[in-house]
Amino acid sequence: MDIGDYEYAAVEYERIVYNNPPPDVVNQALLKEGLCYKALTDYKLASSVLSRANLFLDQDSTNYVIRYEIALNSYLAEDYPSALSQLTQLEYFFKNNGYDKVLFLHILTLNALRRWEEAKEKYQEYVNVNEVELTVEEAYGFLNKTKIKDSEKAESLSYFLPGVGQMYAGYFGRGLLSGFLQAVFIGYGAYSLYEGYFFSGALTGVGLFWAFYSGGSRHAKYLAQKKNEELTAKYNEPIKEALLKRELSK
Protein backbone atom coordinates (compact mmCIF):
# COMPACT_ATOMS: atom_id res chain seq x y z
CA MET A 1 0.00 0.00 0.00
CA ASP A 2 1.27 3.44 -0.92
CA ILE A 3 1.36 6.29 1.57
CA GLY A 4 -1.74 8.39 1.05
CA ASP A 5 -3.79 5.54 -0.41
CA TYR A 6 -6.78 6.46 1.73
CA GLU A 7 -9.24 4.38 -0.24
CA TYR A 8 -7.26 1.23 0.42
CA ALA A 9 -6.71 2.18 4.05
CA ALA A 10 -10.46 2.67 4.50
CA VAL A 11 -11.13 -0.85 3.23
CA GLU A 12 -8.58 -2.31 5.62
CA TYR A 13 -10.02 -0.40 8.59
CA GLU A 14 -13.41 -1.79 7.62
CA ARG A 15 -11.84 -5.25 7.67
CA ILE A 16 -10.85 -4.67 11.27
CA VAL A 17 -14.50 -3.92 12.08
CA TYR A 18 -15.54 -7.04 10.17
CA ASN A 19 -13.23 -9.19 12.31
CA ASN A 20 -15.38 -8.30 15.30
CA PRO A 21 -12.75 -7.05 17.77
CA PRO A 22 -13.63 -5.48 21.17
CA PRO A 23 -15.85 -2.37 20.94
CA ASP A 24 -13.03 0.08 21.69
CA VAL A 25 -10.99 -1.31 18.77
CA VAL A 26 -14.05 -1.07 16.51
CA ASN A 27 -14.35 2.58 17.47
CA GLN A 28 -10.68 3.18 16.73
CA ALA A 29 -11.01 1.52 13.32
CA LEU A 30 -14.13 3.49 12.44
CA LEU A 31 -12.39 6.69 13.50
CA LYS A 32 -9.46 5.95 11.18
CA GLU A 33 -11.82 4.94 8.37
CA GLY A 34 -13.71 8.20 8.81
CA LEU A 35 -10.44 10.14 8.67
CA CYS A 36 -9.62 8.39 5.38
CA TYR A 37 -12.89 9.55 3.83
CA LYS A 38 -12.34 13.02 5.23
CA ALA A 39 -8.95 13.06 3.50
CA LEU A 40 -10.76 12.01 0.31
CA THR A 41 -13.14 14.98 0.93
CA ASP A 42 -16.16 12.67 1.09
CA TYR A 43 -17.45 14.32 4.27
CA LYS A 44 -20.91 12.81 4.10
CA LEU A 45 -19.51 9.28 3.94
CA ALA A 46 -16.97 10.10 6.66
CA SER A 47 -19.76 11.28 8.93
CA SER A 48 -21.82 8.19 8.12
CA VAL A 49 -18.91 5.84 8.94
CA LEU A 50 -18.09 7.67 12.18
CA SER A 51 -21.71 7.60 13.26
CA ARG A 52 -21.52 3.79 13.40
CA ALA A 53 -19.18 4.06 16.41
CA ASN A 54 -20.58 3.11 19.79
CA LEU A 55 -20.55 6.40 21.64
CA PHE A 56 -22.11 4.96 24.77
CA LEU A 57 -18.83 3.44 25.86
CA ASP A 58 -16.60 5.43 28.24
CA GLN A 59 -16.49 9.12 27.38
CA ASP A 60 -12.74 8.88 26.80
CA SER A 61 -10.35 10.59 24.40
CA THR A 62 -11.33 8.36 21.46
CA ASN A 63 -14.97 9.08 22.06
CA TYR A 64 -14.15 12.78 22.16
CA VAL A 65 -12.28 12.69 18.85
CA ILE A 66 -15.03 10.65 17.16
CA ARG A 67 -17.70 13.10 18.28
CA TYR A 68 -15.57 16.00 17.11
CA GLU A 69 -14.97 14.37 13.72
CA ILE A 70 -18.69 13.64 13.27
CA ALA A 71 -19.44 17.28 14.04
CA LEU A 72 -16.69 18.54 11.73
CA ASN A 73 -17.59 16.28 8.80
CA SER A 74 -21.29 17.01 9.22
CA TYR A 75 -20.48 20.73 9.18
CA LEU A 76 -18.34 20.32 6.05
CA ALA A 77 -21.14 18.31 4.44
CA GLU A 78 -23.50 21.18 5.36
CA ASP A 79 -25.53 18.89 7.62
CA TYR A 80 -25.65 21.50 10.36
CA PRO A 81 -28.33 19.90 12.59
CA SER A 82 -26.21 16.73 12.93
CA ALA A 83 -23.12 18.83 13.64
CA LEU A 84 -24.99 20.75 16.33
CA SER A 85 -26.30 17.56 17.91
CA GLN A 86 -22.74 16.23 18.39
CA LEU A 87 -21.44 19.60 19.60
CA THR A 88 -24.20 19.80 22.21
CA GLN A 89 -23.21 16.35 23.43
CA LEU A 90 -19.54 17.33 23.45
CA GLU A 91 -20.42 20.32 25.58
CA TYR A 92 -22.31 18.08 28.00
CA PHE A 93 -19.76 15.27 28.30
CA PHE A 94 -16.52 17.23 27.92
CA LYS A 95 -17.39 20.66 29.32
CA ASN A 96 -14.19 20.88 31.39
CA ASN A 97 -12.21 18.40 29.40
CA GLY A 98 -11.76 19.51 25.82
CA TYR A 99 -14.94 21.35 24.88
CA ASP A 100 -12.98 24.60 24.64
CA LYS A 101 -11.10 23.13 21.66
CA VAL A 102 -14.33 22.62 19.67
CA LEU A 103 -16.01 25.84 20.76
CA PHE A 104 -15.08 27.50 17.45
CA LEU A 105 -16.98 24.80 15.52
CA HIS A 106 -19.98 25.23 17.78
CA ILE A 107 -20.03 28.95 16.95
CA LEU A 108 -19.67 28.30 13.21
CA THR A 109 -22.47 25.74 13.29
CA LEU A 110 -24.85 28.02 15.22
CA ASN A 111 -24.03 30.81 12.78
CA ALA A 112 -24.81 28.56 9.81
CA LEU A 113 -28.17 27.77 11.40
CA ARG A 114 -28.76 31.53 11.93
CA ARG A 115 -29.03 30.97 15.68
CA TRP A 116 -26.98 34.10 16.19
CA GLU A 117 -28.08 34.95 19.75
CA GLU A 118 -26.74 31.59 21.01
CA ALA A 119 -23.69 31.93 18.77
CA LYS A 120 -22.99 35.35 20.27
CA GLU A 121 -22.92 33.88 23.79
CA LYS A 122 -20.51 31.17 22.64
CA TYR A 123 -18.38 33.75 20.88
CA GLN A 124 -18.19 35.71 24.14
CA GLU A 125 -16.93 32.53 25.86
CA TYR A 126 -14.38 32.11 23.08
CA VAL A 127 -13.15 35.68 23.25
CA ASN A 128 -12.71 35.36 27.02
CA VAL A 129 -9.92 32.82 26.54
CA ASN A 130 -8.67 33.59 23.03
CA GLU A 131 -7.21 36.63 21.39
CA VAL A 132 -9.38 37.29 18.37
CA GLU A 133 -9.24 40.19 15.92
CA LEU A 134 -13.00 40.68 16.01
CA THR A 135 -14.74 41.83 19.22
CA VAL A 136 -18.16 40.48 20.11
CA GLU A 137 -19.74 43.80 19.17
CA GLU A 138 -17.97 43.87 15.82
CA ALA A 139 -18.84 40.27 15.09
CA TYR A 140 -22.50 40.38 16.04
CA GLY A 141 -23.24 44.09 15.62
CA PHE A 142 -25.48 43.20 12.70
CA LEU A 143 -28.01 41.72 15.15
CA ASN A 144 -29.29 45.23 15.98
CA LYS A 145 -29.89 46.05 12.33
CA THR A 146 -30.29 42.66 10.75
CA LYS A 147 -31.71 42.70 7.25
CA ILE A 148 -32.85 39.10 7.30
CA LYS A 149 -36.16 38.89 5.48
CA ASP A 150 -39.33 37.08 6.49
CA SER A 151 -40.07 35.01 3.38
CA GLU A 152 -43.71 34.45 4.41
CA LYS A 153 -44.10 38.21 4.78
CA ALA A 154 -42.62 38.75 1.31
CA GLU A 155 -45.18 36.34 -0.16
CA SER A 156 -48.07 37.99 1.72
CA LEU A 157 -46.97 41.46 0.64
CA SER A 158 -47.04 40.46 -3.01
CA TYR A 159 -50.52 39.02 -2.55
CA PHE A 160 -51.57 42.33 -1.00
CA LEU A 161 -49.86 44.58 -3.56
CA PRO A 162 -48.15 42.94 -6.59
CA GLY A 163 -44.42 43.57 -6.75
CA VAL A 164 -44.05 44.90 -3.20
CA GLY A 165 -42.93 41.50 -1.87
CA GLN A 166 -40.00 41.47 -4.30
CA MET A 167 -39.10 45.03 -3.30
CA TYR A 168 -39.22 44.03 0.39
CA ALA A 169 -36.91 41.09 -0.44
CA GLY A 170 -34.39 43.59 -1.76
CA TYR A 171 -35.07 43.25 -5.48
CA PHE A 172 -36.61 46.62 -6.30
CA GLY A 173 -36.32 46.38 -10.10
CA ARG A 174 -37.91 42.95 -10.26
CA GLY A 175 -40.72 44.13 -8.02
CA LEU A 176 -41.32 47.11 -10.27
CA LEU A 177 -41.40 44.96 -13.41
CA SER A 178 -43.71 42.40 -11.81
CA GLY A 179 -46.11 45.11 -10.63
CA PHE A 180 -46.03 46.82 -14.05
CA LEU A 181 -46.80 43.62 -15.98
CA GLN A 182 -49.69 42.74 -13.69
CA ALA A 183 -51.08 46.27 -14.06
CA VAL A 184 -50.86 45.93 -17.87
CA PHE A 185 -52.69 42.58 -17.85
CA ILE A 186 -55.45 43.70 -15.52
CA GLY A 187 -55.72 46.94 -17.49
CA TYR A 188 -56.04 45.02 -20.74
CA GLY A 189 -58.66 42.77 -19.12
CA ALA A 190 -60.67 45.75 -17.84
CA TYR A 191 -60.45 47.62 -21.15
CA SER A 192 -61.53 44.51 -23.10
CA LEU A 193 -64.52 43.98 -20.82
CA TYR A 194 -65.41 47.65 -21.12
CA GLU A 195 -65.27 47.39 -24.93
CA GLY A 196 -67.45 44.30 -24.88
CA TYR A 197 -64.73 41.73 -25.52
CA PHE A 198 -65.83 39.60 -22.64
CA PHE A 199 -63.92 36.45 -23.51
CA SER A 200 -60.66 38.29 -24.24
CA GLY A 201 -61.02 40.38 -21.10
CA ALA A 202 -61.84 37.49 -18.82
CA LEU A 203 -59.62 34.81 -20.31
CA THR A 204 -56.52 36.61 -21.54
CA GLY A 205 -56.46 39.76 -19.40
CA VAL A 206 -57.61 38.33 -16.10
CA GLY A 207 -56.08 34.92 -16.88
CA LEU A 208 -52.59 36.28 -17.45
CA PHE A 209 -52.95 38.65 -14.50
CA TRP A 210 -53.86 35.74 -12.25
CA ALA A 211 -50.93 33.64 -13.49
CA PHE A 212 -48.45 36.47 -12.84
CA TYR A 213 -50.15 37.43 -9.57
CA SER A 214 -49.88 33.98 -7.94
CA GLY A 215 -46.50 33.22 -9.55
CA GLY A 216 -45.14 36.62 -8.51
CA SER A 217 -46.07 36.01 -4.88
CA ARG A 218 -44.29 32.68 -4.82
CA HIS A 219 -41.32 34.28 -6.55
CA ALA A 220 -41.21 36.97 -3.82
CA LYS A 221 -40.92 34.21 -1.21
CA TYR A 222 -38.08 32.58 -3.17
CA LEU A 223 -36.26 35.90 -3.55
CA ALA A 224 -36.51 36.55 0.21
CA GLN A 225 -34.95 33.14 0.92
CA LYS A 226 -32.21 33.81 -1.63
CA LYS A 227 -31.48 37.18 -0.08
CA ASN A 228 -31.32 35.59 3.37
CA GLU A 229 -28.68 33.15 2.16
CA GLU A 230 -26.61 36.01 0.79
CA LEU A 231 -26.97 37.98 4.02
CA THR A 232 -26.14 34.94 6.14
CA ALA A 233 -22.90 34.45 4.22
CA LYS A 234 -22.13 38.15 4.53
CA TYR A 235 -22.71 38.20 8.30
CA ASN A 236 -20.95 34.89 9.00
CA GLU A 237 -17.89 35.25 6.80
CA PRO A 238 -15.90 37.73 8.97
CA ILE A 239 -16.58 35.65 12.10
CA LYS A 240 -15.52 32.49 10.29
CA GLU A 241 -12.34 34.15 9.08
CA ALA A 242 -11.46 35.46 12.56
CA LEU A 243 -12.09 32.10 14.22
CA LEU A 244 -10.16 30.08 11.66
CA LYS A 245 -7.24 32.52 11.76
CA ARG A 246 -7.06 32.10 15.51
CA GLU A 247 -7.45 28.31 15.42
CA LEU A 248 -4.81 27.88 12.72
CA SER A 249 -2.35 29.98 14.69
CA LYS A 250 -2.56 27.65 17.71
Binding site: G196, Y197, F198, F199, S200, L203, T204, G207
Partner: peptide, 13 residues
Protein backbone atom coordinates in the same frame (compact mmCIF):
# COMPACT_ATOMS: atom_id res chain seq x y z
CA UNK B 1 -61.99 26.56 -25.49
CA UNK B 2 -60.20 29.69 -24.19
CA UNK B 3 -58.53 30.33 -27.57
CA UNK B 4 -61.61 29.26 -29.51
CA UNK B 5 -63.97 31.62 -27.70
CA UNK B 6 -61.65 34.59 -28.17
CA UNK B 7 -61.26 33.75 -31.88
CA UNK B 8 -65.03 33.60 -32.25
CA UNK B 9 -65.36 36.88 -30.35
CA UNK B 10 -62.83 38.59 -32.63
CA UNK B 11 -64.65 37.28 -35.71
CA UNK B 12 -68.09 38.27 -34.44
CA UNK B 13 -67.18 41.81 -33.41
Amino acid sequence: VIFGLQTWEGYRK
